[in-house]
Design a protein around this nucleic acid. Sequence first.
DNA 1: ACTTGACCTTCCTGTTGGTGGAACCCTTAG
DNA 2: CTAAGGGTTCCACCAACAGGAAGGTCAAGT
Lengths: 130, 130
Amino acid sequence: MNIGEIATRSGLPAKTIRYYESIGLITPLRDTNSYRTFRQQDLHKLTFIGRARALGFSIEDCRNLLALYEDQNRSSADVKSIAHNHLAKIEQKIADLVDMQGTLTRLISACAGDNRPDCPILDSLDIQSR
Amino acid sequence: MNIGEIATRSGLPAKTIRYYESIGLITPLRDTNSYRTFRQQDLHKLTFIGRARALGFSIEDCRNLLALYEDQNRSSADVKSIAHNHLAKIEQKIADLVDMQGTLTRLISACAGDNRPDCPILDSLDIQSR
DNA sequence: ACTTGACCTTCCTGTTGGTGGAACCCTTAG
DNA sequence: CTAAGGGTTCCACCAACAGGAAGGTCAAGT
């Protein structure tokens, strides 16, 4: 398999796949013409990474998850731990964003949104108003 | 005011303030010794930017909000529009994160988290399982 | 006058996870 | 023979800073 085909099959852009190779996530073989040659296991890994990334895992998390994935002697506790830490970060992000959402929603609904300059949104950002 | 003092007063790191100058958000004066000299209006702007950033606005949004803030002939509709677009992005992010949260929560609770290798988290990332 | 320490300066690098483009090579069909 | 559509490397860029090196400046204490 050349990079174009594996890109289609894995759903990842060829650029991304080259990048993943450059950071050592995958190690495709090379043909005599210097083209990358991907095996089934590479497709496997790339699909795995694509799914993990879709769940928001960082590249470093993906690297660790891949290592566990390939380690038949792994403990599921290690996987769970990575996932748990990741979930905690996501929940923190959600909390932060929901805070912003609340404030913005309030400000937006208080703003007339017409051609006059008065604006509670700007007021709340201005030091004067506090 | 030197950079240290305005950093304390604005709550922003000196590094960040220098960065904001480098991208043209603020334009402090310079003393003869080449030290930056900040006026009250600079503190004002930095505080404004800090609050906008805390609401998740991008630097470019901040730039536009600052311009509107200083434009006495602004229309509040323009401010509201920026805020509205930003809110939409935040809500999209929340939705994405909540999706991840749901999937992760399900997977984590299905994972034993013991010293055995079997792991539904890895299974769900593996192509085999679909 | 000298030193010490706390400021300040610029410049360069690294972060995360890629994307875009240039310049060039390889292969195959018409 | 040439053109299209692969592939290759390398370099630059994005956001929004943070860290650190190397050096200039200032104020206080001795």
